[in-house]
Design a protein around this nucleic acid. Sequence first.
DNA 1: ACCATGACTCCAT
DNA 2: CATGGAGCCATGG
Length: 105
Amino acid sequence: MTRNKTFYERIYAAVCEIPRGRVATYGQVAAMAGNGNAARAVGNALHRNPAPVVIPCHRVVNAQGRLAPHFAFGGDAEQQRLLEAEGVEVRDHHVDLKKYQMRTP
DNA sequence: ACCATGACTCCAT
DNA sequence: CATGGAGCCATGG
């Protein structure tokens, strides 16, 4: 297997790099993985969710600050609970990206 | 190589 | 705010 890690692996690593108490959009994760246009691929990667305990995918939201429509671990409600547990205010499945979106200088 | 799938994003209505 | 259509990407069969 003389092959580098797939984009998915990079995506998982990128999600793990999201600081606690902050969220990142799929586009941002895609950019961290190497392709800012692969937001859809990111959604696919997280959908498979190979390691839900290792990957804090609950910190990943869409460009509107909206939580996932069908979260894997117990539902969107669980994702909201996890975010609130980290200090991220969630209002009806929405987070304030202006305050919680991860910024990369 | 082609087709189908999907936790996306943008724009129009 | 809801709905629909088009565009883009990686993976798997």
